[in-house]
Computed example of a mutant assay.
Amino acid sequence: MDTQSLQAFLAVAETQSFSRAAEQLYLTQPAVSKRIATLESLVGTRLFDRIGRRISLTEAGHLLLPQAKRILLAVEDSRRALANLSGQVGGRLTLATSHHIGLHRLPPVLKNYTQRHPEVELDLHFLDSEFAYQGVQDGTLEMAVVTLAPHPVEQLNVVNLWHDRLCFVCAPDHPLAHASILSLEALCHYKCVLPSAKTFTRTLIEQRFAKAGLSLQVSMATNYLETLKMMCSVGLGWSLLPEGMITSELVELKIDTPPIYRPLGYLVHTNRTLSNAAIKMIEALEG
């Protein structure tokens, strides 16, 4: 079973399109179709149903999908291990980060890294932390630098690098702006703008209020902290933002509760052989 046919199979399965799979693999559509036909001939059954323009996996295709992923990851892992023997730092490093960390934490690290290791092709993805976790888990990402989950995740090696203190803030003309010290209960009487539901940061915030038996009035939500800052600054609600984002557009509120910190760091898969490029990136992050 050749890896090229498996790569074509995965690309068609993920995109549900022969043409999009061809673009992803830098091949012609007939070449992708030929590879799929070769694989179907080898396994002795159809892997895709083609109904009009719609492409979907057959039962056999669904059975082959996780096996194909494991085979390709094992081949890639072997190639990395062999390449590492040379001691050279090069090739592609597939790295994901959140927008906030990419803007506020990573620039000096990336600048230093690219200057030291110009042979590395940095494949940088900006993703929500939750999607980055999934990418490292399924092997599409070699590593991620993101907000860390509030609970351990199986098969992932997670390293805490920084702590972001989240500050309670509001607009200067908000009714809460001139209060001396507020309780969590007082905040619940006003609308707030927060990160989207089920994100790691939102979970940390809700846990603090839930421990006090309180629920929040969330009027708007987004994963982009810069957008949250804007919405808060124009009076759409109070919010929590990393202290590094607090400017004159906002008033930091004094709340009768211990500070809320969110952990930031990197994660890699415990069963994956890291490339020399990834090892050097970890050294840069921890340095």
Rank of each mutant, 00 (worst) to 15 (best):
Y190T: 05
H99I: 14
R70E: 14
V146Y: 00
V136H: 03
C232E: 09
G44N: 07
T114R: 15
L274Y: 07
L285S: 01
N112S: 13
P195R: 06
G44R: 13
N112M: 10
G102Y: 06
P66L: 04
H117M: 08
Q4P: 02
T114I: 14
G87Q: 08
L122A: 04
E59W: 13
D77L: 06
L47K: 06
R208V: 15
T94R: 11
E130D: 13
T247N: 11
T199N: 05
A132K: 05
L122G: 10
F48Y: 01
Y190S: 08
H104V: 04
L85S: 12
A96N: 05
M245F: 07
T247S: 13
G235H: 08
T28D: 15
L42Y: 15
R92E: 09
S5N: 07
T273M: 02
D138N: 15
A221F: 02
R46L: 12
T227N: 07
K229E: 02
F126N: 10
H151E: 14
I51F: 11
L124C: 08
S129F: 02
K111D: 15
F18V: 11
A197F: 15
T58F: 13
Q88M: 11
A22M: 09
I255K: 00
K198N: 15
L156P: 03
N223Q: 12
L47T: 02
L47R: 03
T227Y: 12
R79S: 11
M281A: 08
E206S: 04
A37R: 14
E76Y: 08
G44T: 06
I71K: 03
T199Q: 02
A197N: 15
S275E: 03
K254E: 12
N157E: 04
E252I: 03
I260P: 03
R105K: 00
T247C: 07
R20F: 12
F18C: 09
L253V: 00
P258T: 09
A11Y: 06
K111I: 10
A278F: 07
H62G: 12
A81D: 11
Y224V: 13
R272M: 10
S86T: 14
I282P: 04
T201Q: 06
R202D: 04
L110W: 04
Q155R: 14
S98V: 07
L47I: 06
L216S: 01
G237H: 03
G237K: 07
Y26P: 01
L95E: 02
N157Q: 06
R116D: 02
L64I: 13
R208F: 12
M143K: 01
A186Y: 12
S41D: 15
L184H: 11
M245P: 03
